[in-house]
Design a protein around this nucleic acid. Structure first.
Lengths: 217, 217
DNA sequence: CTGCATTTTGACCAACTAGTCAAGTTTTTG
DNA sequence: CAAAAACTTGACTAGTTGGTCAAAATGCAG
Protein backbone atom coordinates (compact mmCIF):
# COMPACT_ATOMS: atom_id res chain seq x y z
CA UNK A 1 0.00 0.00 0.00
CA UNK A 2 2.75 2.40 0.89
CA UNK A 3 3.67 3.63 -2.56
CA UNK A 4 6.80 5.69 -3.01
CA UNK A 5 6.27 9.12 -4.48
CA UNK A 6 3.85 10.40 -7.07
CA UNK A 7 4.69 8.83 -10.37
CA UNK A 8 4.00 11.28 -13.14
CA UNK A 9 5.32 8.84 -15.70
CA UNK A 10 3.43 5.81 -16.99
CA UNK A 11 2.36 3.00 -14.69
CA UNK A 12 5.54 0.96 -14.94
CA UNK A 13 7.43 -0.53 -11.96
CA UNK A 14 8.28 2.49 -9.84
CA UNK A 15 11.98 3.06 -9.28
CA UNK A 16 13.27 4.71 -6.15
CA UNK A 17 15.80 7.46 -6.58
CA UNK A 18 18.71 8.19 -4.25
CA UNK A 19 16.92 11.23 -2.85
CA UNK A 20 13.78 9.27 -2.18
CA UNK A 21 15.75 6.67 -0.28
CA UNK A 22 17.38 9.27 1.92
CA UNK A 23 14.26 11.27 2.61
CA UNK A 24 11.98 8.37 3.32
CA UNK A 25 14.48 7.15 5.89
CA UNK A 26 14.76 10.63 7.40
CA UNK A 27 11.00 10.84 7.70
CA UNK A 28 10.56 7.39 9.19
CA UNK A 29 13.26 7.95 11.79
CA UNK A 30 11.76 11.26 12.84
CA UNK A 31 8.26 9.80 12.86
CA UNK A 32 9.24 6.91 15.10
CA UNK A 33 10.40 9.35 17.71
CA UNK A 34 7.33 11.51 17.57
CA UNK A 35 4.67 8.83 17.15
CA UNK A 36 6.09 6.76 19.99
CA UNK A 37 5.98 9.75 22.30
CA UNK A 38 2.65 11.29 21.40
CA UNK A 39 0.67 8.54 19.68
CA UNK A 40 -0.97 8.77 16.28
CA UNK A 41 -3.54 11.46 17.01
CA UNK A 42 -1.16 13.34 19.28
CA UNK A 43 1.42 13.71 16.53
CA UNK A 44 1.26 16.46 13.94
CA UNK A 45 2.75 16.23 10.49
CA UNK A 46 4.53 19.50 11.19
CA UNK A 47 6.32 17.95 14.15
CA UNK A 48 7.61 15.10 12.03
CA UNK A 49 8.56 17.42 9.21
CA UNK A 50 10.50 19.70 11.49
CA UNK A 51 12.35 16.79 13.11
CA UNK A 52 13.13 15.41 9.68
CA UNK A 53 14.37 18.82 8.55
CA UNK A 54 11.99 19.44 5.69
CA UNK A 55 8.78 21.29 4.91
CA UNK A 56 5.40 19.71 5.48
CA UNK A 57 4.41 19.64 1.80
CA UNK A 58 7.72 18.01 1.03
CA UNK A 59 7.08 15.32 3.60
CA UNK A 60 3.64 14.80 2.10
CA UNK A 61 5.29 14.38 -1.26
CA UNK A 62 6.86 11.17 0.04
CA UNK A 63 4.01 9.96 2.22
CA UNK A 64 0.75 11.42 0.90
CA UNK A 65 -1.07 10.56 4.16
CA UNK A 66 -0.06 10.68 7.78
CA UNK A 67 -1.47 7.19 8.12
CA UNK A 68 1.00 5.91 5.50
CA UNK A 69 3.99 6.85 7.60
CA UNK A 70 2.44 5.28 10.64
CA UNK A 71 1.61 1.97 9.04
CA UNK A 72 4.95 1.68 7.28
CA UNK A 73 6.67 2.27 10.58
CA UNK A 74 4.58 -0.27 12.44
CA UNK A 75 5.10 -3.03 9.92
CA UNK A 76 8.81 -2.34 9.68
CA UNK A 77 9.10 -2.36 13.46
CA UNK A 78 7.01 -5.41 14.08
CA UNK A 79 8.91 -7.48 11.56
CA UNK A 80 12.21 -6.70 13.21
CA UNK A 81 10.65 -7.23 16.62
CA UNK A 82 9.51 -10.70 15.72
CA UNK A 83 12.79 -12.02 14.38
CA UNK A 84 14.13 -13.35 17.70
CA UNK A 85 11.03 -15.47 18.19
CA UNK A 86 11.52 -17.01 14.78
CA UNK A 87 15.08 -17.82 15.78
CA UNK A 88 14.08 -20.16 18.58
CA UNK A 89 15.59 -23.49 17.59
CA UNK A 90 13.20 -26.43 17.97
CA UNK A 91 16.17 -28.77 18.24
CA UNK A 92 18.02 -26.76 20.87
CA UNK A 93 17.88 -27.12 24.62
CA UNK A 94 14.57 -25.62 25.78
CA UNK A 95 15.84 -23.69 28.78
CA UNK A 96 18.81 -22.45 26.78
CA UNK A 97 16.67 -21.35 23.85
CA UNK A 98 14.25 -19.50 26.08
CA UNK A 99 17.08 -17.88 27.99
CA UNK A 100 18.48 -16.59 24.73
CA UNK A 101 15.10 -15.33 23.62
CA UNK A 102 14.36 -13.50 26.88
CA UNK A 103 17.81 -11.99 27.02
CA UNK A 104 17.48 -10.71 23.47
CA UNK A 105 14.08 -9.21 24.12
CA UNK A 106 15.31 -7.36 27.18
CA UNK A 107 18.18 -5.99 25.14
CA UNK A 108 15.80 -4.80 22.45
CA UNK A 109 13.60 -3.20 25.05
CA UNK A 110 16.56 -1.19 26.22
CA UNK A 111 18.03 -0.31 22.84
CA UNK A 112 14.78 0.46 20.99
CA UNK A 113 12.21 1.52 23.55
CA UNK A 114 10.48 3.81 21.04
CA UNK A 115 9.69 0.88 18.79
CA UNK A 116 8.22 -1.01 21.70
CA UNK A 117 6.09 1.96 22.72
CA UNK A 118 4.89 2.61 19.20
CA UNK A 119 3.64 -0.91 19.00
CA UNK A 120 2.21 -0.95 22.52
CA UNK A 121 0.25 2.19 21.84
CA UNK A 122 -1.20 0.79 18.66
CA UNK A 123 -2.32 -2.45 20.28
CA UNK A 124 -3.65 -0.62 23.33
CA UNK A 125 -5.98 1.33 21.08
CA UNK A 126 -7.28 -1.76 19.38
CA UNK A 127 -4.67 -2.15 16.64
CA UNK A 128 -6.82 -0.39 14.04
CA UNK A 129 -3.92 -0.11 11.62
CA UNK A 130 -2.32 -3.53 11.93
CA UNK A 131 -4.86 -6.14 12.95
CA UNK A 132 -4.46 -7.72 9.52
CA UNK A 133 -0.73 -7.86 9.97
CA UNK A 134 -1.13 -9.52 13.37
CA UNK A 135 -3.40 -12.17 11.93
CA UNK A 136 -1.20 -12.80 8.91
CA UNK A 137 2.27 -12.73 10.43
CA UNK A 138 2.16 -12.80 14.22
CA UNK A 139 -0.36 -15.55 14.80
CA UNK A 140 1.21 -18.14 12.47
CA UNK A 141 4.63 -17.62 13.99
CA UNK A 142 3.35 -17.93 17.53
CA UNK A 143 1.32 -21.00 16.62
CA UNK A 144 4.43 -22.58 15.16
CA UNK A 145 6.50 -21.95 18.28
CA UNK A 146 3.65 -23.06 20.52
CA UNK A 147 3.85 -26.47 18.91
CA UNK A 148 7.55 -26.65 19.70
CA UNK A 149 7.04 -25.65 23.32
CA UNK A 150 4.21 -28.11 23.72
CA UNK A 151 6.48 -30.86 22.42
CA UNK A 152 9.18 -29.85 24.90
CA UNK A 153 6.63 -30.14 27.70
CA UNK A 154 5.53 -33.52 26.41
CA UNK A 155 9.15 -34.71 26.44
CA UNK A 156 9.41 -33.63 30.07
CA UNK A 157 11.99 -30.96 29.27
CA UNK A 158 9.73 -28.23 30.65
CA UNK A 159 7.19 -28.19 33.46
CA UNK A 160 3.63 -28.39 32.19
CA UNK A 161 2.81 -24.90 30.99
CA UNK A 162 0.53 -23.43 28.36
CA UNK A 163 2.81 -22.25 25.52
CA UNK A 164 0.71 -19.23 24.66
CA UNK A 165 0.61 -17.92 28.19
CA UNK A 166 4.34 -18.50 28.50
CA UNK A 167 4.98 -16.42 25.41
CA UNK A 168 2.64 -13.68 26.59
CA UNK A 169 4.43 -13.64 29.90
CA UNK A 170 7.80 -13.22 28.24
CA UNK A 171 6.50 -10.40 26.05
CA UNK A 172 4.77 -8.71 28.95
CA UNK A 173 7.73 -8.76 31.28
CA UNK A 174 10.38 -7.80 28.79
CA UNK A 175 8.43 -5.03 27.11
CA UNK A 176 7.32 -3.67 30.44
CA UNK A 177 10.71 -2.07 30.91
CA UNK A 178 10.35 -0.11 27.69
CA UNK A 179 6.65 0.67 27.77
CA UNK A 180 6.40 1.56 31.45
CA UNK A 181 9.82 3.10 31.72
CA UNK A 182 8.46 6.19 33.45
CA UNK A 183 6.80 4.10 36.11
CA UNK A 184 9.89 1.98 36.63
CA UNK A 185 11.89 5.18 37.06
CA UNK A 186 9.33 6.67 39.42
CA UNK A 187 9.81 3.68 41.67
CA UNK A 188 13.43 2.69 41.28
CA UNK A 189 14.77 6.16 40.69
CA UNK A 190 18.38 6.58 39.75
CA UNK A 191 19.06 2.85 39.75
CA UNK A 192 17.52 2.63 36.30
CA UNK A 193 20.23 4.66 34.66
CA UNK A 194 23.08 2.82 36.31
CA UNK A 195 25.40 0.61 34.25
CA UNK A 196 24.43 -2.84 35.44
CA UNK A 197 20.70 -2.24 35.47
CA UNK A 198 19.89 -4.19 32.36
CA UNK A 199 21.85 -7.18 33.58
CA UNK A 200 20.13 -7.02 36.93
CA UNK A 201 16.76 -6.91 35.23
CA UNK A 202 17.62 -9.78 32.95
CA UNK A 203 18.85 -11.79 35.90
CA UNK A 204 15.62 -11.26 37.86
CA UNK A 205 13.33 -12.01 34.96
CA UNK A 206 15.30 -15.04 33.85
CA UNK A 207 15.48 -16.40 37.35
CA UNK A 208 11.75 -16.31 37.92
CA UNK A 209 10.59 -17.47 34.52
CA UNK A 210 13.18 -20.17 33.99
CA UNK A 211 12.76 -21.59 37.45
CA UNK A 212 9.04 -21.31 36.95
CA UNK A 213 9.13 -23.60 33.92
CA UNK A 214 12.05 -25.90 34.78
CA UNK A 215 10.79 -29.47 35.02
CA UNK A 216 10.06 -30.56 38.57
CA UNK A 217 10.31 -34.13 39.69
CA UNK B 1 -7.41 20.48 42.33
CA UNK B 2 -10.56 19.16 40.65
CA UNK B 3 -13.08 21.65 42.02
CA UNK B 4 -16.75 20.91 41.71
CA UNK B 5 -18.74 23.49 39.82
CA UNK B 6 -18.44 27.22 39.54
CA UNK B 7 -19.33 28.70 42.86
CA UNK B 8 -21.11 31.97 42.40
CA UNK B 9 -21.45 32.38 46.14
CA UNK B 10 -18.67 33.46 48.44
CA UNK B 11 -15.53 31.44 48.89
CA UNK B 12 -16.83 29.13 51.61
CA UNK B 13 -16.42 25.35 51.62
CA UNK B 14 -18.15 24.24 48.43
CA UNK B 15 -21.10 21.93 48.89
CA UNK B 16 -22.03 19.37 46.24
CA UNK B 17 -25.64 19.17 45.21
CA UNK B 18 -27.51 16.02 44.25
CA UNK B 19 -27.42 16.97 40.58
CA UNK B 20 -23.69 17.62 40.70
CA UNK B 21 -23.09 14.22 42.19
CA UNK B 22 -25.09 12.48 39.47
CA UNK B 23 -23.65 14.43 36.58
CA UNK B 24 -20.04 14.23 37.63
CA UNK B 25 -20.41 10.46 37.87
CA UNK B 26 -22.12 10.34 34.48
CA UNK B 27 -19.29 12.33 32.94
CA UNK B 28 -16.51 10.31 34.54
CA UNK B 29 -18.05 7.00 33.50
CA UNK B 30 -18.46 8.18 29.93
CA UNK B 31 -14.98 9.66 29.89
CA UNK B 32 -13.34 6.46 31.08
CA UNK B 33 -14.80 4.64 28.11
CA UNK B 34 -13.74 7.22 25.59
CA UNK B 35 -10.32 8.14 26.98
CA UNK B 36 -9.33 4.50 27.38
CA UNK B 37 -10.19 3.84 23.75
CA UNK B 38 -8.85 6.95 22.04
CA UNK B 39 -6.33 8.44 24.47
CA UNK B 40 -6.31 12.02 25.69
CA UNK B 41 -5.67 13.78 22.42
CA UNK B 42 -7.83 11.35 20.50
CA UNK B 43 -10.86 12.08 22.63
CA UNK B 44 -13.13 15.05 22.01
CA UNK B 45 -15.25 16.71 24.66
CA UNK B 46 -18.22 16.26 22.35
CA UNK B 47 -17.75 12.51 22.40
CA UNK B 48 -17.78 12.42 26.17
CA UNK B 49 -20.73 14.78 26.37
CA UNK B 50 -22.77 12.71 23.96
CA UNK B 51 -22.01 9.48 25.80
CA UNK B 52 -22.89 11.16 29.08
CA UNK B 53 -26.13 12.42 27.54
CA UNK B 54 -25.58 16.14 27.96
CA UNK B 55 -24.47 19.16 25.98
CA UNK B 56 -20.84 20.15 25.76
CA UNK B 57 -21.25 23.46 27.61
CA UNK B 58 -23.05 21.62 30.35
CA UNK B 59 -20.22 19.15 30.69
CA UNK B 60 -17.78 22.05 30.84
CA UNK B 61 -19.88 23.49 33.63
CA UNK B 62 -18.81 20.55 35.78
CA UNK B 63 -15.26 20.14 34.53
CA UNK B 64 -14.04 23.46 33.15
CA UNK B 65 -11.14 21.77 31.33
CA UNK B 66 -10.81 18.51 29.46
CA UNK B 67 -7.66 17.90 31.45
CA UNK B 68 -9.64 18.04 34.72
CA UNK B 69 -11.76 15.06 33.75
CA UNK B 70 -8.71 13.13 32.69
CA UNK B 71 -6.71 13.72 35.84
CA UNK B 72 -9.65 13.04 38.14
CA UNK B 73 -10.24 9.78 36.35
CA UNK B 74 -6.62 8.71 36.52
CA UNK B 75 -6.24 9.40 40.20
CA UNK B 76 -9.53 7.69 41.02
CA UNK B 77 -8.51 4.69 38.96
CA UNK B 78 -5.01 4.40 40.26
CA UNK B 79 -6.11 4.54 43.87
CA UNK B 80 -8.52 1.70 43.37
CA UNK B 81 -5.95 -0.17 41.35
CA UNK B 82 -3.42 0.02 44.13
CA UNK B 83 -5.62 -1.25 46.95
CA UNK B 84 -4.82 -4.96 46.50
CA UNK B 85 -1.12 -4.27 46.84
CA UNK B 86 -1.73 -2.46 50.12
CA UNK B 87 -3.67 -5.49 51.29
CA UNK B 88 -0.69 -7.83 51.16
CA UNK B 89 -0.29 -9.01 54.73
CA UNK B 90 3.32 -8.93 55.98
CA UNK B 91 2.45 -11.57 58.54
CA UNK B 92 0.74 -13.94 56.13
CA UNK B 93 2.25 -16.83 54.23
CA UNK B 94 4.33 -15.34 51.36
CA UNK B 95 3.22 -17.69 48.61
CA UNK B 96 -0.37 -17.45 49.75
CA UNK B 97 -0.29 -13.65 49.88
CA UNK B 98 1.21 -13.37 46.45
CA UNK B 99 -1.21 -15.90 45.04
CA UNK B 100 -4.07 -13.80 46.36
CA UNK B 101 -2.55 -10.62 44.94
CA UNK B 102 -1.97 -12.05 41.50
CA UNK B 103 -5.41 -13.61 41.37
CA UNK B 104 -7.03 -10.32 42.31
CA UNK B 105 -5.07 -8.40 39.71
CA UNK B 106 -6.06 -10.80 36.97
CA UNK B 107 -9.69 -10.42 38.01
CA UNK B 108 -9.39 -6.65 37.86
CA UNK B 109 -7.77 -6.86 34.46
CA UNK B 110 -10.80 -8.75 33.24
CA UNK B 111 -13.48 -6.71 34.95
CA UNK B 112 -12.05 -3.23 34.35
CA UNK B 113 -9.85 -3.39 31.29
CA UNK B 114 -10.64 0.24 30.42
CA UNK B 115 -9.11 1.43 33.66
CA UNK B 116 -6.00 -0.58 32.96
CA UNK B 117 -5.74 0.82 29.45
CA UNK B 118 -6.31 4.37 30.57
CA UNK B 119 -3.42 4.08 32.95
CA UNK B 120 -1.19 2.21 30.55
CA UNK B 121 -1.69 4.85 27.91
CA UNK B 122 -0.81 7.62 30.31
CA UNK B 123 2.38 5.95 31.49
CA UNK B 124 3.33 4.98 27.96
CA UNK B 125 3.29 8.65 27.01
CA UNK B 126 5.49 9.66 29.91
CA UNK B 127 2.82 10.14 32.58
CA UNK B 128 2.66 13.91 32.04
CA UNK B 129 -0.50 14.20 34.13
CA UNK B 130 0.30 11.92 37.03
CA UNK B 131 4.03 11.71 37.63
CA UNK B 132 3.52 13.59 40.90
CA UNK B 133 0.91 11.11 41.96
CA UNK B 134 3.24 8.22 41.15
CA UNK B 135 6.00 9.70 43.28
CA UNK B 136 3.71 10.54 46.16
CA UNK B 137 1.52 7.43 46.34
CA UNK B 138 2.86 4.62 44.21
CA UNK B 139 6.52 4.71 45.17
CA UNK B 140 6.03 4.72 48.96
CA UNK B 141 3.61 1.83 48.80
CA UNK B 142 5.90 -0.24 46.61
CA UNK B 143 8.88 0.58 48.80
CA UNK B 144 6.92 -0.59 51.82
CA UNK B 145 6.00 -3.90 50.23
CA UNK B 146 9.51 -4.38 48.90
CA UNK B 147 10.76 -4.39 52.48
CA UNK B 148 8.30 -7.12 53.33
CA UNK B 149 9.28 -9.25 50.37
CA UNK B 150 12.95 -8.77 51.08
CA UNK B 151 12.35 -9.97 54.64
CA UNK B 152 10.51 -13.02 53.32
CA UNK B 153 13.51 -13.81 51.14
CA UNK B 154 15.81 -13.33 54.12
CA UNK B 155 13.75 -15.78 56.14
CA UNK B 156 14.08 -18.34 53.35
CA UNK B 157 10.40 -18.28 52.61
CA UNK B 158 11.02 -17.17 49.03
CA UNK B 159 13.84 -17.86 46.60
CA UNK B 160 16.26 -14.96 46.33
CA UNK B 161 14.56 -12.45 44.09
CA UNK B 162 14.62 -8.70 43.73
CA UNK B 163 11.33 -7.43 45.19
CA UNK B 164 10.96 -4.59 42.68
CA UNK B 165 11.42 -6.78 39.67
CA UNK B 166 9.01 -9.30 41.13
CA UNK B 167 6.35 -6.63 41.52
CA UNK B 168 6.97 -5.31 38.01
CA UNK B 169 6.65 -8.81 36.69
CA UNK B 170 3.32 -9.31 38.40
CA UNK B 171 2.03 -6.01 37.07
CA UNK B 172 3.31 -6.68 33.59
CA UNK B 173 1.83 -10.14 33.27
CA UNK B 174 -1.54 -9.40 34.79
CA UNK B 175 -2.15 -6.13 33.01
CA UNK B 176 -0.99 -7.58 29.73
CA UNK B 177 -4.32 -9.32 29.36
CA UNK B 178 -6.21 -6.02 29.59
CA UNK B 179 -3.80 -3.77 27.75
CA UNK B 180 -2.92 -6.13 24.91
CA UNK B 181 -6.31 -7.75 24.69
CA UNK B 182 -6.44 -7.27 20.94
CA UNK B 183 -3.14 -9.04 20.49
CA UNK B 184 -4.14 -11.87 22.78
CA UNK B 185 -7.32 -12.27 20.77
CA UNK B 186 -5.45 -12.13 17.47
CA UNK B 187 -3.41 -15.09 18.61
CA UNK B 188 -5.72 -17.18 20.76
CA UNK B 189 -8.90 -16.34 18.88
CA UNK B 190 -12.20 -17.52 20.25
CA UNK B 191 -10.61 -19.12 23.29
CA UNK B 192 -10.43 -15.71 24.94
CA UNK B 193 -14.17 -15.32 25.18
CA UNK B 194 -14.77 -18.82 26.53
CA UNK B 195 -15.98 -19.27 30.14
CA UNK B 196 -12.91 -20.74 31.79
CA UNK B 197 -10.39 -18.46 30.12
CA UNK B 198 -9.66 -16.27 33.11
CA UNK B 199 -9.11 -19.31 35.30
CA UNK B 200 -6.80 -20.83 32.72
CA UNK B 201 -4.83 -17.60 32.52
CA UNK B 202 -4.60 -17.30 36.28
CA UNK B 203 -3.47 -20.89 36.52
CA UNK B 204 -0.68 -20.38 33.97
CA UNK B 205 0.57 -17.13 35.45
CA UNK B 206 0.42 -18.39 39.01
CA UNK B 207 2.16 -21.61 38.11
CA UNK B 208 5.14 -19.92 36.52
CA UNK B 209 5.59 -17.05 38.96
CA UNK B 210 4.95 -19.00 42.15
CA UNK B 211 7.20 -21.84 41.10
CA UNK B 212 9.72 -19.29 40.01
CA UNK B 213 9.96 -17.80 43.49
CA UNK B 214 9.30 -20.82 45.67
CA UNK B 215 12.34 -21.46 47.83
CA UNK B 216 14.61 -24.12 46.40
CA UNK B 217 16.74 -26.33 48.56
C1' DC C 1 24.13 22.86 -22.29
C1' DT C 2 19.21 21.95 -22.82
C1' DG C 3 14.98 20.23 -21.67
C1' DC C 4 12.30 17.18 -18.96
C1' DA C 5 11.42 14.84 -14.52
C1' DT C 6 11.92 15.22 -9.81
C1' DT C 7 11.92 17.71 -5.71
C1' DT C 8 10.73 21.62 -2.74
C1' DT C 9 7.91 25.12 -0.63
C1' DG C 10 4.85 29.40 0.53
C1' DA C 11 0.28 30.30 0.64
C1' DC C 12 -3.92 28.59 1.29
C1' DC C 13 -8.32 26.00 2.70
C1' DA C 14 -11.76 23.25 4.96
C1' DA C 15 -12.66 20.57 8.90
C1' DC C 16 -12.36 20.08 13.56
C1' DT C 17 -12.24 21.18 18.40
C1' DA C 18 -11.47 23.36 23.21
C1' DG C 19 -13.52 26.65 25.41
C1' DT C 20 -16.81 31.15 25.92
C1' DC C 21 -21.03 33.59 26.56
C1' DA C 22 -25.37 35.31 27.19
C1' DA C 23 -29.77 33.98 27.47
C1' DG C 24 -32.98 30.70 28.90
C1' DT C 25 -34.94 26.73 32.11
C1' DT C 26 -35.26 24.18 36.26
C1' DT C 27 -34.56 23.48 41.14
C1' DT C 28 -34.18 24.98 45.69
C1' DT C 29 -35.23 27.86 49.48
C1' DG C 30 -37.21 31.22 52.54
C1' DC D 1 -45.16 31.09 45.46
C1' DA D 2 -41.66 34.32 44.40
C1' DA D 3 -36.83 35.14 44.04
C1' DA D 4 -32.34 33.47 44.04
C1' DA D 5 -29.28 29.90 42.91
C1' DA D 6 -28.14 26.18 40.14
C1' DC D 7 -28.29 24.17 35.83
C1' DT D 8 -28.60 23.86 30.69
C1' DT D 9 -27.74 25.02 25.90
C1' DG D 10 -27.50 27.22 20.94
C1' DA D 11 -24.51 29.97 18.74
C1' DC D 12 -20.11 31.49 18.41
C1' DT D 13 -14.79 32.19 18.36
C1' DA D 14 -10.01 31.43 17.97
C1' DG D 15 -6.61 28.22 17.24
C1' DT D 16 -4.98 24.04 15.23
C1' DT D 17 -4.09 20.69 11.74
C1' DG D 18 -4.33 17.42 7.61
C1' DG D 19 -3.97 18.07 3.18
C1' DT D 20 -3.90 20.88 -1.64
C1' DC D 21 -1.87 23.54 -5.28
C1' DA D 22 0.68 26.07 -8.38
C1' DA D 23 4.88 27.76 -9.10
C1' DA D 24 9.79 27.77 -8.28
C1' DA D 25 14.20 25.31 -7.68
C1' DT D 26 17.03 21.45 -8.44
C1' DG D 27 18.83 17.19 -10.51
C1' DC D 28 19.95 14.62 -14.39
C1' DA D 29 20.05 12.18 -19.11
C1' DG D 30 21.45 12.85 -23.68
Amino acid sequence: MAKAAKQKTSGGPEKTTRIQEINRRLILDAALDVFSTYGFRGTTIDQIAEKAGMSKPNLLYYFPRKQNIYVTLLEETLTEWLAPLADIDPEGDPIEQLRKYITLKIKMSESHPEASRLFANEVLHGAPAISDFLAKHLKPLVDEKAVVIRRWVGEGKLAPVDPYHLIFMIWATTQHYADFDVQVRAIMGSQVGRPGFREQTAQAVLSIILNGIRPRD
